[in-house]
């Protein structure tokens, strides 16, 4: 046996979920629900730290575990927030939980956005559908540390008004002078949508005040969105290695063991979920 493994230290079990309490839950859309949770152990709540763009493994007793992006910002400590869409067994079961129920959570995992490298840069943040989940963390963090960043553009597209996540929050942002918020829907079935109508790609023509060489872009959305948004960002002359994508994969462990998220030698859970476009340019499996 390998002597290196013999150390008699009781290792922390990285698979062990911590029990957390659901503090708030409410519907964001018909099938996406917002959950705010807090560790049961006060010390854990106080020391919770993570990066925007990281994810956690959320467990529902008796059903299973799945990865979810963190939607809250580390600049507002003590709480974790998730937007969860009802798509599978685990999420359906989480949907049925109520405030004050307990839930298992472990993490944070993944690299998250390189916040140090983003300092002093202009940001173009593009989100579609559930892509708002990780990018809300980034935008809130940037706004809480507003002096650290240059121009900030926030582009958010949804299929229709009823499907836009964090609508109220983002409409409030439109009022703010220190962030350029552009919201659009593919089609307005309500007839009352006060913002733009059209694909998210139509918003890019209004991006005027950035210095491309000093700009980082962040994208998250459904797989079809990446290709077209990347084209727009390249037209703006943002360097490929400054276009950051947050990707989704099936995961069973979050720590590079179970193999499900592997693409070539890349583990989405460990090396990602945030990749630069340059990282993935020759690995089409990563995006599509």
């Amino acid at each position: 046996m390998n002597e290196g493994l013999c150390a008699d230290i009781k290792l922390a079990n990285d698979f062990q979920p911590d029990m957390m309490r659901i503090v708030r839950k409410y519907n964001l859309t018909d099938d996406v629900r917002f959950f705010q949770v807090r560790p049961m152990e006060e010390q854990k709540a106080l020391t919770l730290c993570y990066n925007p763009g990281q994810f956690m493994m959320v467990s529902r007793l008796g059903v299973g575990e799945a990865p979810f992006s963190i939607s809250s910002t580390p600049s507002r400590p003590g709480l974790l927030e998730f937007c969860i869409r009802e798509v599978g067994q685990v999420t359906q079961s989480i949907f049925r939980l109520n405030e004050n129920d307990s839930i298992g959570v472990r993490g944070p995992y993944g690299n998250g956005f390189p916040m140090e490298r983003l300092k002093g840069r202009d940001l173009v943040i593009t989100m579609g559908g559930l892509g708002a989940a990780p990018l809300r963390s980034l935008i809130l963090y940037a706004l809480d540390n507003r002096d650290d960043f240059g121009e900030i553009y926030l582009l958010h597209g949804a299929k229709k008004p009823g499907e836009m996540l964090f609508k109220t929050e983002f409409f409030d942002m439109i009022e703010r002078k220190d962030v350029n918020t552009m919201l659009t829907v593919d089609a307005d079935d309500t007839g009352k949508w006060p913002a733009k109508v059209g694909l998210v790609t139509t918003l890019f023509k209004d991006i005027k005040q950035i210095d491309p060489a000093n700009t980082f872009a962040a994208i998250c959305g459904p797989p079809v969105m990446y290709k077209f948004v990347i084209q727009e960002l390249l037209k703006l002359k943002i360097p490929k290695n400054q276009i950051l994508l947050s990707l989704e994969r099936r995961m069973k462990c979050g720590i590079g063991k179970c193999g499900h998220c592997v693409v070539k030698h890349i583990y989405t859970c460990m090396d990602g979920p945030v990749f630069s476009y340059w990282d993935v340019i020759n690995m089409k499996e990563l995006i599509y």
């Binding site: 467990s59 529902r60 007793l61 008796g62 059903v63 299973g64 575990e65 069973k252 462990c253 063991k257 179970c258 193999g259 499900h260 592997v262």
Partner: peptide
Amino acid sequence: CFNVTDTVALGKMEGTRDRCWDAC
């Protein structure tokens, strides 16, 4: 590679989280 599943006891909130070999 492995998969992780939860098994629940009948009529109780108790059970096991199990791990089994999986294949890509």
